[in-house]
Nucleic acid binder design. Structure first.
Length: 94
DNA sequence: TGCTTGACTTACG
DNA sequence: CCGTAAGCCAAGC
């Protein structure tokens, strides 16, 4: 199983209203957090990357600028333009 | 078949 | 807040 497919599968499994840090996906499949971000750039689209945010809650998806709106529309607590990681339990543990 | 480049996140001060 | 350093994977020729 390639890290690319693994990352894409995990990211595509993220339920609506929940976000996951790159490090969590990387740990889940056994790769570094950078590989997850690398795959995101390779696939570009076809995966809800907007639900994948940085460890700080900053959206790093290619949908930058619309991520806060998308997450907010799904019910994710937003701290300004960043996901409020200190508010509810919106972190999807997989 | 083998090698190189590019892209991306995380941690610390 | 910003900058720096480190490492890993994939694709192409």
């Amino acid at each position: 199983m390639n890290a690319g497919d693994a990352v894409r599968e995990v990211a595509a499994t993220i339920p609506r209203g929940r976000v996951v840090p790159y490090g969590a996906i990387g740990r889940r499949i056994g790769v570094g957090p950078r590989q997850v971000g690398r795959v995101r750039g390779l696939l570009g689209d076809g995966v809800p990357w907007w639900r994948v945010v940085r460890a700080d809650g900053t959206p790093a998806s290619c949908h930058e600028g619309r991520v806060p709106g998308l997450l907010r529309g799904e019910g994710v607590p937003m701290a300004g333009a960043r996901v409020d990681l200190g508010r509810g339990r919106h972190r999807w543990a997989g």
